[in-house]
């Protein structure tokens, strides 16, 4: 049973997040069926790090998937482990990620979906790292040694659209 406030919050969030996805060539947002939508899978087409579970080698992955769920009482209480689920790649290599958990640090009650998407993107691309308080201590230690490799992807999530008219140059 969703009250009016939560319902309108979720509806507004869907519109704002889909708008962001439209304006981004990096974000692909899949809302789950529901009225209003409470579950999403966000795919970020951006580079992040993964560790090969067999060889232990650190490599790059071209995208990641994060699950986002808004419980009934999201406007009043919020636990990051409940709201966010790391789906893919399972061996993501980041101090704040240990699948299926992702730790954004501070996630307030009623945080907008758009803000959550920005936070997840910043984490995956290493634009945001909390070295001191890590879920994956090995990744934190590795990252501190390899700061020159970071951030892995420097592109902003939303980029300005530039209208470019391409015409064939006239032969002179």
């Amino acid at each position: 049973m969703l009250d009016y406030q939560t319902r309108s919050f979720l509806e507004r969030n869907l519109v704002a997040a889909m708008e962001l996805a439209d304006q981004s060539d990096i974000l692909e947002l899949k809302p789950f069926a529901g009225d209003p939508v409470r579950k999403y899978i966000a795919r970020f087409h951006a580079r992040g790090l993964v560790r090969d579970p067999v060889t232990g080698e650190i490599g790059e992955a071209p995208f990641c998937d994060v699950g986002i769920w808004f419980p009934d009482d999201y406007l009043q209480r919020c636990t990051p482990f409940e709201v966010l689920t790391w789906l893919c790649p399972p061996h993501a290599w980041h101090p704040q990620i240990r699948a299926p958990f992702i730790c954004p640090g501070r996630l307030g009650e009623g945080t907008q979906l758009v803000d959550i998407l920005y936070q997840c993107y910043d984490i995956w691309t290493y634009q945001k790292v909390n070295w001191g308080d890590a879920l994956n201590h090995e990744a934190a230690a590795w990252g501190r040694r390899c700061l020159d490799r970071l951030p892995v992807d420097k592109r902003p999530l939303k980029r300005r659209r530039v209208a470019v008219n391409v015409r064939a140059a006239e032969a002179s």
Binding site: C78, F81, C103, G105, E109, D133, L135
Partner: peptide, 12 residues
């Protein structure tokens, strides 16, 4: 509500 947001450490 912002102040209500607890500081979650990554160890849960």
């Amino acid at each position: 509500y912002r102040n209500l947001a607890k500081e979650y450490h990554c160890d849960g």
